[in-house]
Design a protein around this nucleic acid. Structure first.
Length: 472
RNA sequence: GCUCCCAUCGUCUAGCGGUUAGGACGCUGCCCUCUCAAGGCGGAAACCGGGGUUCAAGUCCCCGUGGGAGCGCCA
């Protein structure tokens, strides 16, 4: 049997982090077994499905690097097939037309809730031989659920789960307008697409029994189920739009690398011993459904930040640089224009002090633009009264003929020694002068990247500032 | 209300009958240091409660409690 998994989102919103993890698990499992991963868009709800949402899902998958072998399939394009199966079930007597009005159903439900029993269809039309005389509405089609016995779902992560068939009512599989509903199309599609492993959120565990029964009515064996636990927000609550960056694309915009998001996601509900950082190959090699946790997990944003930094520091610089360029662009800086320093060198220098690409872009801004104002506190502390030091630096750095970190370092050290001060007393004024604030990579590296000309101009500006503010 | 699922540090987790209950993030002490980081070495921090089973229970069973999900002509 070849392994086939599928990711089947409904296009009613963006691809959120929980869906992304489900997709990742499906993808990993298929890759691990040399199987097939299919993408299916569950858009049978014409009211709520939107093309924007479809694009958002496709974009999210692509950004994460989750490629699929088949699809995307759209359920709205398979209506003839569903109609065909529906006819067969009607003919077989495993489904029936129900003429109950929505009003009747609503009052039935209200009554049951008032009596504190589980709301369910009462089977009113189940044994009808012909339409009732007053049948004015277009009938829905219901699945004829077995009345007695149990339905057992063998779930790979939850274990054996038994449902009393009496708990499962006759669910609607086609609406009054003839369009099929979720529990039915899922079954038909998984069957037609030969899905071997259904990996999805455990909010579907209850549906598994209904679906298994439909499959049985169709004479088909159910797939292997794996219901993975939910992902909760930081507070342990269900994920919602209010929880901040719930969309995968928001993570991109916030400066996370897809590698970090993937790694973070794979460790949510899954572990391989004590290992925290996984390459894609390692994930594929080690991933197994049997190692998936049974309980829900909460988001831990600071761990994502840590992972992101690990990847910023270790991924090939050219790769990180490409992502950084995007965020510099967001700041109105075009690193491709050639004026600025080498992007990869910036990545090397800034990665150990950046959690995200947004931070990295922001703190690298000064390489491209001279500071408009100095950080107030830093300027007063390091610039005020530093005219002599800055003047000395100006001449020492002007004299550097081979502008390299090593030679710069020598020049700066020379000034410190000549002034009988520690390196910090010299480095900090430079830092404020060139970066505008008290923080930057090592001063020699910073200056090398900035370039000699810009360094001298900024030092001169800082000297002027120090003179102007001296009397105050 | 009914049905189903779940329960180890604050969080992510290892553990698969015998462990000083391990790792990671975060927090924190020290070291390194031109700033900020990164890095190195330490520290605090957990088996939800009660019953069983067993020579032995975080691990198996039951109950309770607490979370979560489902109960649509949504998916």
């Amino acid at each position: 049997m070849t392994v086939t998994t599928r990711f089947a989102p409904s296009p009613t919103g963006f691809l959120h982090i929980g869906g992304a993890r489900t997709a990742l698990f499906c993808w990993l499992y298929a890759r691990r077994h040399g199987g097939r991963f299919v993408l299916r868009i569950e858009d049978t709800d014409l009211e709520r499905s939107t093309p924007e949402a479809i694009n958002a899902i496709l974009e999210g998958m692509s950004w994460l690097g989750l490629d699929y072998d088949d699809g995307p399939f759209y359920q709205t394009q398979r209506f003839e097939r569903y109609a065909e199966v529906l006819e067969k079930m009607l003919a077989d007597g495993t489904a029936y037309r129900c003429y109950c009005s929505k009003e009747r159903l609503e009052s039935l439900r209200a009554d049951q809730q008032a009596r504190k029993v589980k709301p369910r269809y009462d089977g009113c039309c189940r044994e009808l031989n012909k339409p009732p005389v007053d049948a004015t509405e277009s009938p829905v089609i219901r699945f004829k659920q077995p009345l007695e016995g149990h339905t057992v779902v063998e779930d790979t992560v939850k274990g054996t789960v038994a449902f009393d068939n009496a708990e499962l009512d006759d669910l609607i599989i086609a609406r009054g307008d003839g369009s099929p509903t979720y529990n039915f199309v899922v079954v038909v599609d998984d069957m037609d697409m030969q899905v071997s492993h259904v990996i999805r959120g455990d909010d579907h565990l209850n549906n598994a029994a209904r679906q298994a029964n439909i499959l049985k009515a169709l004479g088909v064996n159910p797939p292997i189920y794996a219901h993975v636990p939910m992902i909760l927000d930081e507070a342990g609550k269900k994920l919602s739009k209010r929880t901040g960056a719930a969309s995968v694309m928001d993570y991109r915009d916030a400066g996370y690398l897809p590698e970090a998001v993937i790694n973070y996601l794979v460790r949510l509900g899954w572990a391989h011993g004590d290992q925290e950082v996984f390459s894609l190959d390692e994930m594929v090699e080690h991933f197994d459904i049997s190692d998936i946790n049974h309980s829900a997990s909460s988001l831990n944003p600071s761990k994502l930040e840590w992972l992101n930094q690990q990847y910023l520091m270790t991924l090939p610089r050219a790769h990180v640089a490409r992502h950084l360029a995007r965020h510099l662009g967001d700041l109105g800086i075009d690193p491709a224009l050639g004026e600025g320093p080498n992007l990869e060198a910036i990545v090397e220098a800034q990665a150990p002090r950046s959690k995200t690409l947004v931070e990295m872009a922001d703190s690298s801004r000064f390489f491209y633009e001279a500071p408009e104002v100095y950080d107030d506190k830093a300027a007063r502390k390091h610039l005020l009264g530093s005219e002599a030091v800055i003047s000395a630096l100006l001449s020492a750095l002007t004299a550097v003929s081979d502008w390299q970190a090593a030679t710069i370092h020598e020049a700066v050290m020379g000034v410190a020694e000549a002034q009988s001060v520690k390196l910090g007393k010299v480095a900090q004024p430079i830092r404020v002068a060139v970066a505008g604030g008290p923080v930057s990579p090592p001063i020699d590296v910073t200056l090398e990247l900035l370039g000699q000309a810009a360094t001298l101009v900024r030092l001169e500006s800082a000297r002027q500032w120090a003179i102007e503010h001296a009397e105050a």
